[in-house]
């Protein structure tokens, strides 16, 4: 008999007999009904408490803010999505104070060392945020691949204030995740960190050292 069938059979022929499933009441996960302003405030407080940085912008000011953020860090380049409106807008702005713009438009195998060693910053969209834990929701796509939010030392994320949910539970139900998940879905709450050396926090251990959120209000 295959290992699969051995295991399943042992579980099915349980000597203790059939088990009954208890009721699960999820109402304890409900948080107060925060207003949009309160959700933004909570999101900001939580993500800043783990070293994330929040900038409040509008649809008109975010690119200017982006340029400032990059310039203060001396970033030599910025990786942008090719098709997403964010990438389009950055390109169309034709600002001269932006660093060199890069696209992630080839399979990673052909240029991996460049991504790992030369890219200073990336910008991606988000599918919303979570106020309660200060988290960003990302579903990477061919336009914004998985490593874009992981490998460059600075990750900048654009978040629409109107898309901040109260809890993860609420967000996954509202966006109906159960009907189909992407290859990879992520919650990102702050820059990469570790406390593995004597409980001392250090940032950027494997992923970005900095996470910057541009909240568009």
């Amino acid at each position: 008999m295959s290992s699969r069938n051995i295991i399943l059979q042992r579980l099915r022929n349980r000597t203790g007999g059939e088990l009954t499933a208890p009721e699960c009441d999820f109402s304890v996960l409900k948080r107060p009904d925060w207003s949009t302003a309160e959700r933004i405030e909570r999101f900001e407080k939580m993500i800043e408490s783990v070293h994330g940085e929040v900038h409040h912008c509008t649809a008109d000011t975010w690119i200017e803010r982006l340029a400032e953020v990059l310039n203060t860090r001396g970033a030599r380049n910025l990786m942008i999505p090719k098709q997403h409106a964010i990438g389009q807008a950055i390109k169309a702005s034709e600002r001269t104070d932006l660093p060199e713009l890069l696209l992630y438009d080839e399979p990673i195998e052909s240029w991996q060392p460049y991504l790992f060693n030369e890219v200073d910053a990336s910008i991606t969209s988000t599918r919303g945020g979570i106020a309660e834990t200060g988290s960003l929701i990302l579903w990477p796509t061919p336009d914004e691949p998985r490593l874009m939010s992981l490998v460059p030392p600075v990750h900048i994320a654009v978040l629409n204030a109107s898309e901040i949910y109260t809890t993860f539970h609420e967000a996954m139900l509202a966006q109906d995740w159960a009907s189909g998940m992407p290859t990879n879905a992520l919650l990102i709450s702050g820059p990469s960190k570790t406390a593995d050396i004597e409980q001392t926090l250090a940032y950027g251990v494997h992923g970005p050292k900095e996470l910057i959120v541009l909240v568009i209000e």
Partner: peptide, 22 residues
């Protein structure tokens, strides 16, 4: 004692279609 970890990584398939990594 973290409200959430930095990453919550949900994987549902290998690289597919037009995807450029994974």
């Amino acid at each position: 004692g973290q409200h959430i970890t930095t990453y919550f990584n949900m994987i549902s398939s290998p690289r597919k279609g037009e995807e450029l990594d994974g």
